[in-house]
Amino acid sequence: MKNISKLFYIVLLLVTGIVNAQDFAKVDNTVKAYPKAFSDTNKFANQVKADFKTDADKARAIFTWIALNVRYDLAAYGVNQRPVAYSFTTQEEKLAQQKKFREELATKTLKSKKGVCEGYATLFAVVADKVGLEAVVVPGTSKSHPMHIGKAPGANDHAWNAVKVDGEWKLLDATWAAGVVTGDKPAFAFKFNDGYFFAEPDVFFLNHFPDDKKWLLTTKTEADFANLPLYYGNYLMEGYNFISPGFGTFTNKAGAVVPFKIKNLKAGDTVHYAFSKTRKIEEVTYTKNGDVAEFEVPLNANSVGTLTIYINQKSVAGYKVNR
Score class of each variant (00 low, 15 high):
D166V: 04
G115H: 14
H208W: 12
W215G: 12
R102Q: 15
A155P: 06
L95T: 03
W160N: 00
K130F: 08
V116S: 02
G167V: 00
K220G: 14
P139G: 03
P201Q: 13
A178E: 00
K114C: 14
F192K: 02
D202Q: 07
L133W: 00
A152V: 04
V127K: 01
L105A: 09
F101K: 13
A178H: 10
K108Y: 07
N156G: 12
F205K: 02
T218C: 15
F209H: 07
F205L: 10
K143M: 08
G179P: 04
I149K: 07
V181E: 09
Q98F: 07
K164A: 10
G150H: 11
D166M: 05
V163D: 07
V131C: 10
V116A: 01
Q91G: 12
F198C: 12
M147L: 15
A155Y: 07
K100T: 12
A199F: 01
E104M: 07
L105I: 12
G179N: 03
A199R: 07
P146V: 08
T107H: 06
Y120D: 04
F124I: 08
M147T: 09
G150C: 14
R102V: 00
E134R: 02
G167D: 12
T141Q: 13
S112C: 06
G150R: 10
F197V: 04
K108L: 13
G115V: 10
P201I: 09
K170R: 15
D173R: 11
G115K: 03
E222P: 01
A223E: 08
V181T: 13
E222R: 15
G119E: 06
N207M: 13
A226D: 02
G132P: 06
A125V: 05
E118K: 09
G119Y: 04
D184Q: 13
A226L: 14
G119W: 11
I149S: 09
A223G: 01
K143Q: 09
A125I: 03
F101P: 01
K143D: 05
T141C: 14
F190I: 03
A178S: 14
K170Q: 14
K99F: 06
K185N: 06
D129I: 00
F198I: 05
F197K: 02
S144A: 15
K185T: 07
S144E: 10
F190Y: 05
T219L: 03
A135D: 00
A223W: 07
D194M: 09
A177R: 07
A121G: 13
T89W: 03
V126I: 01
T141R: 14
K114Q: 14
Q98L: 11
G154F: 09
K94V: 00
Y196F: 14
F197M: 01
F225N: 05
A159D: 12
P153Y: 03
A226Y: 12
S144H: 02
K94M: 07
W169D: 04
D212I: 06
G195S: 08
E222C: 15
V131Y: 13
F188V: 11
E222Y: 00
H148R: 12
D194L: 09
Q98R: 10
E104I: 01
A128W: 05
E200W: 02
P186N: 08
A189S: 14
E93L: 12
A187F: 06
E168P: 03
Y120A: 12
A152Q: 02
V137Y: 01
F192I: 00
A199V: 01
Q97Y: 09
L95C: 05
A128N: 08
